[in-house]
Design a protein around this nucleic acid. Sequence first.
DNA 1: AATGAATGAGGGTTCATTCAT
DNA 2: GATGAATGAACCCTCATTCAT
Lengths: 199, 199, 199, 199
Amino acid sequence: MGKIDDNKKKKKEALFNTAYELFITKGIHSTAISDIVENAGVAKGTFYLYFKDKYDIKNKLVIQKTKELFNDAGNALYTSGAHGLEEQLIFIIDHVINALVENKPLLNFISKNLVMGALRSTLITGEKNDNDIYERFQELVADDEYQYEDIDVMLFTIVELAGSAAYNSILYEEPLPFEEYKPFLYRSVRLIIKSHRAQ
Amino acid sequence: MGKIDDNKKKKKEALFNTAYELFITKGIHSTAISDIVENAGVAKGTFYLYFKDKYDIKNKLVIQKTKELFNDAGNALYTSGAHGLEEQLIFIIDHVINALVENKPLLNFISKNLVMGALRSTLITGEKNDNDIYERFQELVADDEYQYEDIDVMLFTIVELAGSAAYNSILYEEPLPFEEYKPFLYRSVRLIIKSHRAQ
Amino acid sequence: MGKIDDNKKKKKEALFNTAYELFITKGIHSTAISDIVENAGVAKGTFYLYFKDKYDIKNKLVIQKTKELFNDAGNALYTSGAHGLEEQLIFIIDHVINALVENKPLLNFISKNLVMGALRSTLITGEKNDNDIYERFQELVADDEYQYEDIDVMLFTIVELAGSAAYNSILYEEPLPFEEYKPFLYRSVRLIIKSHRAQ
Amino acid sequence: MGKIDDNKKKKKEALFNTAYELFITKGIHSTAISDIVENAGVAKGTFYLYFKDKYDIKNKLVIQKTKELFNDAGNALYTSGAHGLEEQLIFIIDHVINALVENKPLLNFISKNLVMGALRSTLITGEKNDNDIYERFQELVADDEYQYEDIDVMLFTIVELAGSAAYNSILYEEPLPFEEYKPFLYRSVRLIIKSHRAQ
DNA sequence: AATGAATGAGGGTTCATTCAT
DNA sequence: GATGAATGAACCCTCATTCAT
C-alpha cells in the first residue's frame, strides 16, 4: 500500500522534474510529451495517469516554481533582520528577483504568468501548507507598526509591477539593465506600500 | 505597376486582417495557416511570400494593434482638454484600458506581450510615422511645467504596471473587478510620475 | 459459498448491465472497457475474469436482448387470444417490432445482427430454458390446423425479412415511415407463411 | 491542368482500390489508414485530402460495390432473354447473389449495409449515371404487362429480404446451404412481386 | 507573383492487456 | 478472486512547408 503510493508519487515526481528540465531547456513548444516520458523513464500512458495534457503539467509547474521562489524568500527573511513591512517586502521582492537573475530560464518559463494567481492558489486548492507565503504576507502586514488598507490590492500591485518590469529588464535589458533599473523599481514599490497606509 | 502593387498590398492586408480575426476568435494555437489563407481567399504558398510563419504574423499584429491603441488615445488627447503631464498620461492610459475593457479578445491577444517593445518598435523599424506615440510622449514630457528625469524609465514602469495589472483585473477580476481596482492603479501611476520629477 | 457465488454473479451482472447501457448510449465503438468497469464499480482486471474482450460481451448482450424481446412477445401471446399460426406469428413479430419502435437505441444495437442466430443459440449453448422461444415456435406450428413444411426455413425467412425491413423503416423511414410500411410487411409475412403450408 | 486533375483522380482511385483490397483481406477494423496509404503509395496526409476518415471511404466503397453488382446484373439482363418483370427481377437478384457466392469477402464487406440506400444514392447525389440501376428498375416495371403499385416498397422488400437471407445462407449455411435455400427465397420473392400487382 | 496538391514527420491520445500485490 | 497502476504499441490526424505548374 505504502509501496504503491510511494511508487506513484515517485513517477509523478519524475514526470514533474523531467518536464521542468525540458521546458526550460528546449522550451514548452518544442517539448513533446514523448520527450518527457522518455527522459522520465516511464511509459507514455503513465503521463496521462497524472496529467491532462502538456499545459496541465506546465501550469502546475509554474505554480510550484513560483511558490518555491517566494517560500525561499520568506525563509530567508527570518535571518535577514529586515524590520518593518516596507523593508520586509523589499527584501522578499529582491530575494525573488535575485533568484531569477541567477536563473533566467526559470524567469523565462514563469514569464509573466500567473504570478499572483500562483501565490493565492493555496487558498484556492485548500491544501494546508504551513510555509505558505500568502499567509506570511498577512502576518507581516499585521505585525507592522502601521495599519494598512486594501492589503490584497497592495500585494497584487507590487507583485505585478515587479514581475512585469523585472521580466523585461532582466531578459532584455529594457529599458535598462536590471541593476540600473532596480533603484527605480524599488522606489516605486515603496511608494505603493506607503500609499496603502491608513492615514 | 501601381495596380500590381495595390494587389500585392491587398493580399497582405487580407492575410493580416484574417489572421487577426482568427487569432482572437479561435486563439493562436488553434489557428492554422491553412485557416488563414482559406479565409483570406489566397493560396497557401502566398502566405509564405509575405510572412515567415505564424509567429511572424502574430508578432506584427501585436505591434500593430498596440500602436493603434496608443495612437487612438493620443488622438483623443487633442480634444480632451487634459492639462499637465500627469493628467495627460492618465488620460492615455485610461483611454487605452477602456478600449481593452470593451475588447477583451484583443486584451487577451496582446496579453502582456511586448507592450513597451511595441511602442518603441518605430524606432527600431525606422519607419517614420508622424503620428508616433513614442515621440508624442517625449513632447508631452517636454511641454509640462515640471522637469522629468529618466523619462524612458518612467514610461516603461507605468506601461508595465498598467498593462500587467489591467490584464488580470479586467479578464479575471483579480484582485478586484477593474472598475474597483482602477482608483488604486491610477493612484500608483500618479505616484510614479511624481517620483520622476526633478526636485 | 452461496454468498461468494452471489457476489460473483453480481459483478458479472453489473458488467453486463453497464456495458449494455453504455453501448446503446455511446455506441460500441466509443465505449472502452475502462468505461464499463468504472461505471460498474469493479476493477479493470475483473472484466477479464468474466469476458474475453469487448466483443465477447457485446455478442452475449445481443443474444440476451434478442431473446428477451421474443420471450416477452411469447408471453404476451398467452393473453392475446390470437388464433392460428398466421395470427400468432404476426402477433409475435408485431410485438417485437413495437418494442423496437419504442426503443430505437436497442434496435440500433442489435441492428441486423444475429437475429436468427440468437434465437437458435439456446440449442447451441444447451442451456435449458423452459421459456424458450424457439421451442414455442415449434409448438405453435404443431398446434395449427394446417401442416407446414420446412418450418425452419419459414421462420428464418420471416425473421430476416422483418428484421431487415423494420431496421430501415423504423430508423431511417426508408422507404416509408414504419407505420406506413407495416401493412406491406405483414402482407409479405402472411404470404410467406401460407407458402409453407403443405398443400 | 488536365495533368493535375488526372493525377488527383489517380491518387483517389489508388486509395479507393487499396482500401477495398485491405478491407476485404484484413477486415475493416484491422485496416489502419497507414496501411492504406502505404500500399497505395501516397503520403498519409493525402488520404485526408480525399476522405474524411476510414468510415468515409468504407461507406463510399460499399455504395460503389453495391452499384457495380447491380449494374453488372442489369447489363447481363440485356442478353438474358428474361421476359416479364418477375423473371427479370429474379434474374437480377440471382445474378447479384451468384456474384456474391463467388466473392464471399465482398459479401462479408457489404454485409447487410446500405443495400437499398446504395441503390438510391444516385438520386440523392444527383450524379447522372445513365447506367443507373434504379432507373432501370423503373423502366422494367413500366414495360411489364402488369401494372404495379408501391414500386419502391416492392423493390425495397425484395432487396432487403434477399440481402439479409443470402448473407446468412451463403456465409453461414443458415438455415440451409444457399443452393438449397434458393428455391424458397425465390418463391418468396415471386410472391412479393405478385402481391404488388394492381388488381 | 501565385497557386494548391502533396508531403510525411510528428504530435497527442487511447486503451486492451498484464501482473504484482 | 479482485485490484488498478503501468504499460507501450497503435492509431488518427494535423499542418508547416515545398515545388511543379
